[in-house]
Amino acid sequence: MLHDLLIAPFQDFEFMRRALVGTLALALGAAPVGVFLMLRRMSLTGDAMSHAILPGAAVGFLVAGLDLFAMTLGGLVAGVVVAVLAGLVARGTELKEDAALAAFYLVSLALGVVIVSLRGSNVDLFHILFGSVLALDDAAMLLLASVASLSLVTLAVIWRPLVMECVDPNFLRSVSGAGGPVHLVFLALVVMNLVGAFHALGTLLAVGLMMLPAAAARFWARDITALAAIAVLVGMVSGYAGLLVSYNTELPSGPSIILVAGGICLVSIFIGPVGGILRRLIPARHLEA
C-alpha cells in the first residue's frame, strides 16, 4: 500500500524518475543560492531575474523552436544583460535598484510573451511559462545536473569571501579585492540556476525552488551552513512530494512542487523553532541569565 503510494509511480514510469532526478538536482544547486539571496535581502532580485530570462529564451524559441540549447543560451544572455543593466541604472540614476529591476522584469515578461506568440501556440506559451518537469529529455537532465555541480563547486570556492561580503563588505574591501568579482560570480550563479530551473518549472515558477526552501530554512536554523543544508533538504522533499501529489491527483506537476514548498514554508513560519509564530504566541518562561 505504502509502496504503491510512495515508490511505485517512480518504479513504473521513466518520466517520473527523470522528473525526480531533475528536481533533486535543481534543489541541490538552487537552494543554497536562494539562502544567500535571502540573507542579502535580494529575494525580489531573484524573482525579477527569473522573469528577465524570458525574452532571451523566447528569442531562442523563435529561432530554433523548443530547442534546449538555443533557449538556454538566450536565457543566459538575457539574464546577464538585465542584471548588469539594472545595476548600472541603479548606480547611474536616481532610480533605486528594486524599482529598476521591477521596470525591467515587467517589460521582459511582456516582451517574452509577445515573442513566443509570434511563432508558437498557446501550448508552447504554457510550456515556457510553467515548464515541463515531466518531459525532461537527456539534454535537459544533463543541463540540470551540470548546473547543480557547477553551483556547488563555485559556492565552495567563493564561500568565505561571499560570507564576508554579506556581513562586512568594508572589511573585505580592506583586506582583499575579491568583493566585486565575488558579487558578479554570485549573480552569475543566480542566472545559471534560474535558466536551469526554467526548463523544469518555467519562467514564472523557476525562482520557487530557490526562494521558498530558503525562506522555510530561516525558521529552523541560525547558522549559515545549516541554513543551506536545510534549504536543500526542503527543496528535495518538495520535489519528491510535489511529484507524488501531481501523479495521484493529476494536477500540473510544476505548480504542485511549488505548492508543496510553499506549504512547508507556511508550516515553518508557524511552528519553526527560530522565531516561528507559535513560539511567540506561547512564550516559555524566561531564563535566569
Binding site: L39, C166, V167, D168, P169, N170, F171, R222, D223, L227
Partner: peptide, 13 residues
C-alpha cells in the same frame, strides 16, 4: 569600520 556598516542580522558565529 564603523559598526553601523556591518549587517548584524547575518547568521554568522
Amino acid at each position: 569600520p564603523q559598526i553601523a556598516e556591518i549587517d548584524r542580522s547575518f547568521p554568522i558565529a
